[in-house]
Simulated scan of single mutants.
Amino acid sequence: EIDLVDFGELVEQNKDVSKYVPALNWIEKNFYKSICNENTTIKNMSKTIEKEKRKKTKQFLKALGWILIIADAVAFFIGGKTMLVIFIMVLMITYAVYIKYYPYIFIEVTTKKGQELAYQLPFMGATIAMLLSLNTSKLFNYEFGNYMKITAIITALLALPFIIKSLKTDVPQKFGRKLSVVFAAFIIAFTISFPINFLFTFDGATHEIAIVTDKKISSGKTRDRELYVSCNGKREIYTVSNSEYENTSIGDSKRICRRKSALGLEYSTIHD
C-alpha cells in the first residue's frame, strides 16, 4: 500500500520519508542517508554564512559611518568648493547604502539597543553633512520658487533607483515606508540643490550697491543674524555671520554680489 514516488526527489526537498525507508535495501538506505546528511550540512552552512554576512555588514556600516563623519570634519576645515563636493558625496553614499540594503535596513530608536545600532549606521555622517551644507546655503539669497523646481527634478532622479529596487523586491513593503524613502530623497535633494548650483556656476559675478535699512536677530532656534537692505528700490534680506552683523550699522553701504548657475538659479551674497 505504498505509493510509487521519486524517493530521491523527496530527500532533496527535505520531506519526511520515514514511511518509505522499510522498502529500501541496505545499499539504498546508506546512499540516501548520506544525501540527507549532506542536505543538513549545506543548510547549516547557509545559516552560518548568513550570520557571518550580517556581522560583516554591520562592521562595514559602522566603519563607513565613522569615515563619513571624519570626511565631514575635513570638509569643514578645507572650505570652498571642495567642502561642498564632500558634503554632496557623503549624502549620496549614505543614500546609495540605504537603497542597496532596502528593505532590510531601518533605524529603530525606541529602545537603547536600537539607538546604539542607529549610531553605527552611516546616517550620522549624512546628518552632519546636511546640517553643515544647509548652514552654508542660508548665507546666500536666492529665488525660492526656482530653487524648489530644481529640487523637484533632483528628487525625481534620486527616487528613480529606489522605485526600480522597490518594484524588483518581493518583500512586503508598507506604503508609509515607501513614502518615507521618497521624502528622504526630497530632503537630500533640497540640501544639495544649492551646492550643485554653486558648483555649476561658471559666469562672473555682477555687483550692485545696497543700503542697510535694518538689522535683526531671528527668534528661531538658530538665532540667525539678518541684514535688511534696499537695492535698486527693492527690499532684500541676507543672513550673515556674527562678525559681519556686529560690524554693520544701519545706513551702511554694502555690495551685493549676484551670480547665476548653469542650471538657472540666481543667487547673491552681501559684503563690504
Score class of each variant (00 low, 15 high):
E143G: 02
A75W: 06
V90S: 08
A23L: 13
Y101M: 13
F123E: 07
G176A: 04
F87N: 09
L160G: 04
I35G: 04
L91K: 04
H271Q: 14
S241P: 10
L64N: 10
D252L: 02
H271E: 15
V229H: 03
M124W: 05
D224I: 08
E244K: 13
K55Q: 12
K51W: 02
I35Y: 09
L158Y: 05
A118E: 05
N44T: 06
G80L: 02
S243I: 14
A75P: 13
K53L: 10
L10W: 00
G233M: 12
L179Q: 11
E52T: 10
D3R: 14
K260Y: 03
E28M: 06
I196Y: 07
I256Y: 07
E266I: 11
T239S: 06
T201I: 01
Y147C: 02
G65H: 00
P22H: 04
T248F: 01
N39I: 09
F198D: 05
N242A: 14
T57I: 15
S249N: 15
S166A: 15
W26T: 06
Y32I: 01
K149A: 09
H207G: 01
F200Y: 01
D214Y: 03
A189I: 08
N44C: 01
A75H: 10
S219I: 05
D214G: 00
V109Q: 10
M92K: 01
A118D: 06
E50Q: 12
I99P: 10
G176E: 00
K168E: 07
M148D: 01
I2P: 10
G79Y: 01
L68R: 10
A262H: 01
S166N: 14
Q59V: 05
I49W: 05
N232M: 04
Y104M: 15
Y95H: 14
K58I: 10
T213P: 02
S133C: 13
A156C: 11
L160V: 11
I86K: 07
M89A: 15
S261D: 02
I237Q: 07
I250D: 05
R225T: 09
I42L: 09
M130G: 08
Y101P: 06
S18L: 11
N30L: 14
I93D: 05
W66C: 08
Y267W: 03
I86Y: 00
S34G: 15
R255A: 13
F123K: 00
K174Q: 13
G220L: 10
Y119P: 00
